[in-house]
Design a protein around this nucleic acid. Structure first.
Length: 289
DNA sequence: ACTATGTCCTGCGAGC
DNA sequence: TGCTCGCAGGACATAG
């Protein structure tokens, strides 16, 4: 469901709520799809760890975990078969990585709160609260790692020359290039469409044929649209809410996404919707070349 | 190596 | 009301 601005909003909300808290126990559901790492690895990596930070990398939420020294003496956690993490020393940091897919949610709640349908993981915290992962479509993924290795570059950090180089020699449509997480991480369908509109580039435009001037505009437009969206707490379409249950407001700023047949806000031409790489793509046929 | 396509899931609203 | 259909913010495997 969420793209970079929504994940950023969620990660910030989680950081303020659970940083410093410790994980006492982990329950994982029976469905196998949400687990990218073996269940035993996840449980072993999370239990009795302190959450030292929560941050976003692309569309992933990364929890930095450290062995909780108060718990260490009490936990005879050795002997568990955790191949990937077995060579980590006792105090070494590990990470819990959550990808929300299309419909994933991470909620912090009291233990007596009703357990939502499609709850796949419940993490009990020392503070008494619970962190729950809920995901109806099960496109989301949970995993653990010693150091998460995300692909691509953060769009908010990339400089102009490296940005332009991403598109060089590629035949693929600009829309597909923007969605390719190996190039830029965190851009999804909404912000791809919105940034292409602001830069005046058609989504089907072949990457290699895009002019330097257009790419320069896109570099600025993408950063601008992502920053504006983060400032407004992301876009709430259907049921997206952040860690505090608050909805975002950037959907009110969409200029093309979800506006098929509505007049372009610049030139009044009806907005078009086409399918590119299986994804809805919205653009103004007059403003975008 | 790069690119296009199908597939994984559930839920919702539109249209009949 | 109840059914079917198409669509949904993502990412991977696979085939060409």
């Amino acid at each position: 469901m969420p793209e970079l601005p929504e994940v950023e909003t969620i990660a910030r909300g989680l950081a303020s709520r659970v940083t410093g808290d410790a994980i006492e126990s982990v329950w994982l559901g029976q469905k196998k799809e949400p687990l990218k790492s073996p269940a035993a690895d996840i449980v072993a990596a999370l239990e009795h760890r302190r959450i030292t930070a929560v941050r976003r990398m692309g569309k992933h939420i990364v929890f930095d975990l450290q062995r909780n020294h108060l718990e260490r003496a009490l936990s005879p956690a050795k002997g568990r078969k955790v191949k990937k993490l077995s060579d980590t020393s006792e105090g070494a940091a590990t990470q819990w990585i959550v990808h929300l897919g299309m419909t994933g949610r991470l909620q912090v709640c009291e233990p007596d709160a009703e357990i939502a349908k499609h709850t796949h993981a419940i993490v009990k915290l020392k503070s008494g609260r619970e962190l729950r992962f809920v995901d109806p479509r099960r496109f989301g993924r949970l995993s653990v790692a010693i150091e998460f290795d995300a692909t691509g570059t953060e769009p908010l950090e990339i400089d102009l020359e490296n940005f332009i180089a991403l598109f060089r020699g590629r035949k693929t449509p600009m829309k597909s290039a923007l969605l390719n997480q190996k190039l830029l991480r965190g851009v999804g369908n909404i912000y791809a469409d919105e940034s292409l509109f602001r830069a005046g580039i058609r989504p089907r435009r072949r990457a290699f044929s895009t002019t330097r001037n257009q790419l320069q505009k896109l570099h600025a437009a993408l950063k601008e649209v992502l920053k504006e969206a983060i400032a407004l707490g992301g876009s709430s379409i259907s049921d997206y809410v952040d860690a505090d249950g608050e909805q975002g407001f950037f959907q009110l700023q969409h200029r093309v996404y979800g506006r098929e047949a509505e007049p372009c806000l610049v030139c009044k031409t009806p907005i078009k919707r086409v399918v590119i790489a299986g994804r809805s793509s919205h653009y103004c046929p007059k403003c975008q070349k």
